[in-house]
């Protein structure tokens, strides 16, 4: 394959990182390895976002997923099982049947998007930073969803506190 441009190399590298990480999540036997693989996968996806000129989304991906969700997951692992516990169980159930189902889904979706006639010819738009455009969209056309999202986050905040709070004796 001649003309192996830098872009192709970078893409396959990042896609590889994302997929290998995802495989780690799906197949690792130790839950902590799964969590760390998840972080690897997120990093790869963040790289893909940069390739797609979505700097802002890439930044959010790093901050929220790599910085937040993965750390939260590790915390949950430690709180529930104790990281030093040898028996950090991560067994899988019904792998064969699961694999079958997933292959069916894969085949179905693969076929659909390969067969799809995309609306307009695939082309690169001018590569410029889209952060400003995202900001305008969030506070312009999408300001209502944006505000609703803040309500959702508030509800989550309260909900998480209520759920994890220890039961006290005063509830009578």
């Amino acid at each position: 394959m001649e003309g192996l441009s830098a872009e192709v190399v970078v893409f396959f590298f990042l896609a590889g990182v994302a997929v290998v990480g995802a495989c780690g999540v799906a197949f690792a036997t130790h839950i902590v390895y799964s969590a760390l693989s998840l972080m690897l996968s997120f990093l790869g996806v963040a790289g893909l976002y940069v390739m797609l000129d979505a700097d802002f989304v890439a930044g959010v991906q790093l901050l929220v997923y790599v910085g937040g969700v993965v750390v939260l997951t590790l915390f949950a692992v430690m709180l529930t099982q104790g990281i030093r516990d040898v028996k950090v169980s991560n067994r899988s159930a019904g792998r064969g049947f699961g694999l079958l189902t997933v292959v069916a889904v894969f085949a179905l979706l693969w076929r659909s998007f390969q067969a799809a006639q995309w609306h307009r010819p695939v082309e690169y738009l001018a590569a410029e930073s889209s952060t400003a455009a995202v900001g305008n969209a969030l506070l312009g056309r999408y300001v209502l969803p944006f505000e609703v999202a803040s309500l959702v986050l508030l509800a989550v905040l309260v909900g998480a506190v209520v759920l994890t709070r220890k039961e006290t004796a005063e509830s009578e």
């Binding site: 159930a93 019904g94 189902t101 069916a104 889904v105 179905l108 659909s112």
Partner: peptide, 20 residues
């Protein structure tokens, strides 16, 4: 929970197959 998930996914597959 896995059993419920299987039912969910298989149902989706069936619907999509019937359309595709």
């Amino acid at each position: 929970i896995n059993a419920y998930l299987y039912v969910l996914v298989l149902a989706v597959i069936l619907v999509l197959f019937s359309r595709a």
